[in-house]
Write a protein that binds this DNA or RNA. Structure first.
Lengths: 244, 244
DNA sequence: CCGGATCCGTAACGATACTG
DNA sequence: CAGTATCGTTACGGATCCGG
């Protein structure tokens, strides 16, 4: 009858009691880039039933991580947004993303869904605050019908759904080309030359873009030797895989 | 038949495909402080069935996050340990703990289990690298039959299950008193005076202990106002709740 | 059409009993 | 001690239906 809980006096377990169920952290991920409507959430969470999404949103509201809002005019539609408590899960979600980029970043698998917003969050995960100390720029990305923008300022980064007010750089392309760009299979210059991407704006800031991120060396997760002090596994030495 | 997956080309979702199922991150949490035997894991994960734990460990081995090891003499018993990939989930688990300390840190609930190791990890989560820049010390905690030690050096912290080689400070007490210490309901000095804790070792380093951690202000997760720009909620102003 | 609520088959989990 | 086998219960996934 009552809710399933780990029943542990432990901060990690308490957190997982609230956000550890299936889909929950992905709902948070979606809302981290801005408010979303029920239908948009559903569209980005293929496989999740409407009933389950409604139940999750209701529970997250009860727990004070999510709130219902009304989108500003002209939209004026009902939507869901994170509260301060919910938004504070950002570092946790980014930590998950960082691990995935390092240890589970094989290429796109057959049938896997791809959304622009996820990659934008990935950029946040590998953002290099040091390298961005003196950069102040707004990048806008347009893929298919989706638009996100990334604001870099004071060594911080922010990723938001929707167009920017005054972007310094605009990159417009297809989902597949954008995916290839971020996977390091293609450079922006190449994409632009081949006509598969439209790029406009400040050339200086465009060139700076790739320096703002420190992609972790993707590693293979091979089981190590058992027994004593397991010897260091040599670096995999695969392609460094640069984004942008 | 096949494994349940989110099927998203997204680093966060990929990570959750591997460690997002029930209990999995708590198994990782247990192993973050050192190798553990099957029975010890089970004892610290009350409510988890033997079959499920076995299945999780088998899967995590297949995925290269966990490996079977043989404990060094005199134990010489089989145990489970993290691989490099598994250990790299440390930052993620600590991020979860940090959120819990801030937003879900109500007092101990009726029936909740408490283990020394979880609190030791909590200390890691709120460790203040700046404040510890010039501290070099090993603290040992003994609670009931459990022993952990915390090594602080070069602005880094490490929490390990078992006794230290040469601890600078040793604190021995009961689970309930230790819990109260970390919850800020009691100071080490008070506990020592009342005879509910044995403390020995370097007094200087003992006094430094509490300065090494920056406990987040615990916040209530109240749902914020909907509509326009939600007004700032006033600080809860509860007791600052200092550990140690 | 959007935002759900309801229903039902399947997969995951929890507790206990049993075995090398 | 370290698991495997079994079985009742809960959670999830997909489809259908309903109100504004």
């Amino acid at each position: 009858m009552s809710r399933r809980t780990y029943n542990q006096y432990c901060a990690t377990a308490r957190t997982l009691d609230i956000v550890g169920e299936r889909w929950t952290l992905l709902v948070i991920r979606e809302l981290l880039t801005g408010p979303k409507r029920f239908g948009d959430l559903l569209a980005n969470l293929a496989g999740m039933g409407t009933g389950l999404l409604a139940a999750r949103l209701r529970y997250l509201q009860e727990e004070g991580l999510v709130q219902q809002v009304v989108l500003p005019p002209p939209a004026k539609a009902p939507a869901y947004a994170l509260t301060e408590a919910g938004a504070d899960l950002g570092p946790t979600v980014l930590a998950l993303a960082r691990w995935g980029l390092r240890w589970a970043a094989e290429e796109r698998r057959e049938g896997e869904v791809f959304r622009l917003g996820w990659t934008v969050l990935g950029m946040q995960a590998i953002f290099d605050a040091e390298a961005a100390r003196d950069v102040r720029a707004v990048y806008e990305f347009r893929v298919d019908d989706d638009v996100f923008h990334v604001r870099v300022e004071h060594g911080e980064i922010e990723s938001v759904h929707g167009p920017a007010q005054r972007p310094d750089v605009v990159i417009e392309t297809s989902a597949e080309v954008f995916r290839a760009l971020m996977a390091g299979e293609l450079s922006v210059a190449e994409a632009k030359r081949s006509g598969s991407a439209e790029v406009s704006g400040d050339q200086q800031l465009l060139r700076k873009l790739r320096s703002l991120f420190r992609l972790p060396q993707p590693q293979a997760r091979v089981a190590e030797e058992a027994a004593g002090g397991s010897a260091l596994t040599p670096p995999t030495g695969g392609k460094p895989s640069n984004p942008l």
